[in-house]
Computed example of a mutant assay.
Amino acid sequence: MTTATFHQTIGTNQIYGSFNDSGSRTGFRIFSMMSLSNTLRIHPGLLRKRTLSSSQCKSCIIEASKFHLSVVDPMLSSSHSTTDDSWKTSNESALILIRHGESMWNEKNLFTGCVDVPLTKNGIDEAIEAGKRISNIPVDVIYTSALIRAQMTVMLALTQHRCKKVPIIMHNENEQANSWSQIYSESIKKQSIPVVTAWQLNERMYGELQGLNKQEMAEMCGKEQVHKWRRSYDVSPPGGESLEICYQRAVAYFREHVRMAICILCNILDWNAVIYSQILIEPQLSSGKHVMVVAHANSLRSIIVYLDKLTSQEVINLELSTGIPMLYMYKEGEFIRRGSPPGSKEAGVYAYCRSLALYRQKLDEMSY
């Protein structure tokens, strides 16, 4: 049985297929990928068909899921620091977690969940203050949810960072979005921080509570019941997600290397197979990257359950304030909580590890 075999061209964002049975090259392109550790094999007979059965599509997806991918975008493959990178160490990385600033529905004491509402004026101030607190901590890549209140917080916080890099949202939803958002200046790439958005980091969906007032619901259903809906691990609000369900999507995204899906797209002239990949978080830390995650109370509570190895009972008392950064250090496969950075003019947090102290020293030298 003849198969079409695909190998990556190192240093590019495209992978082209080999020749099919008739001697013509199959026009496959794989976007936003820097390396493949295996070889993808798809029977060319599938490529000549104008329709694919669900079982054939499923087979392709299973094949793709066997891959182990490393960092997939050139902007993420190195720190691109404008300073000397000798302060970096291969086994020590910073992880910053920030809950978004106050939203307009936080202000109104409403259940928000996945409703996409912006920040208040106070939330804008909180995001700016969070940026000041982490302004001396290195950031190579940022992950945020698909919701505007988290994305606003990212952008406002980065206006305060001393590295002066520009946060740029990565658009890999499809081939055109990827193509149209390319940056062709290498120097500008080095002055940018990629921002990866992921629905898996969204707030948990509060179901039939979304848009309702928390105090009014406590009076109607009882404080104890509302507390269970909001803080317990395995109790879901009506029609919504429990923290356990939120944990499954948020922590899976945090931990795993890549989830891939193959889309076989029909074209009048030929077929294109596009693999969309998601760059996930813990592997970035393992490779020495410094990561910031800006998300929501419950998606971050889920991640903290994983980082701090909390029990389902301990998480009940875990509450996160809006706009307050939390710092972890990742070293030799372990996460070490370092609390909240005290502020841009405070030096105490940088005594936690040598790499942060050296990074701040480099920033100080640049400012002279």
Rank of each mutant, 00 (worst) to 15 (best):
S340V: 09
A64I: 02
V195L: 01
T89E: 13
E224I: 11
C246V: 00
R338I: 11
Q225W: 10
K331S: 15
I142M: 06
N172P: 01
R338S: 11
L147S: 01
I148H: 07
N13E: 09
Q200D: 08
S236H: 09
R204F: 01
Q160P: 05
G348H: 08
L52T: 00
S32F: 12
M329H: 07
I42P: 02
R255E: 01
G207D: 04
Q284K: 03
R231Q: 06
H257K: 15
A64R: 06
D140K: 01
P194H: 05
R354S: 14
Q182W: 02
D308H: 13
M217F: 08
T89C: 08
S90A: 09
L285V: 10
L307F: 08
S242C: 11
M155C: 13
A127Q: 05
S299Y: 02
G113A: 00
S185E: 01
H7P: 12
D364V: 12
S321I: 06
S35N: 13
S53M: 15
R99C: 02
A347S: 15
F31Q: 10
E107V: 03
R99P: 02
K362S: 06
H7C: 12
I336S: 07
K189P: 03
K214T: 07
E203W: 10
L97S: 00
A261G: 09
L36R: 01
A157H: 00
A177L: 09
I183F: 15
L320F: 00
K309T: 08
T197W: 00
A157P: 10
V195F: 06
I262H: 04
A218L: 05
S242Q: 08
E319S: 03
I98Q: 00
Q8P: 12
S340F: 14
G27Q: 12
K223F: 07
F335W: 14
K164A: 06
C114D: 10
L358Q: 07
M366A: 08
C263Q: 06
L285H: 04
K214G: 03
N136V: 01
H80T: 05
C163V: 07
I62A: 13
S81M: 15
G45W: 05
G123D: 11
I279F: 14
M326H: 12
S145V: 02
M329N: 11
S86R: 15
S242E: 04
F335P: 00
S77F: 14
A64N: 01
L147W: 07
M220E: 14
N106K: 01
M170T: 12
G211V: 06
Y306W: 05
G113N: 09
Q182R: 11
A146M: 11
S286V: 12
V72P: 03
H80E: 04
T82W: 09
L147E: 01
N272A: 05
H43K: 07
K345L: 06
L318F: 09
G101E: 06
V72I: 13
E208G: 04
Q160D: 10
L285W: 02
N267M: 12
H161Y: 11
I62N: 15
M366V: 03
R360I: 03
A351G: 08
Q210F: 10
K165Q: 04
S65L: 12
V196R: 03
M329L: 15
Y352R: 11
L318C: 13
T12F: 06
H296Q: 00
L76C: 01
S344D: 08
Q151S: 14
R50I: 04
I193R: 05
A357E: 11
C263R: 05
E219N: 15
S192L: 07
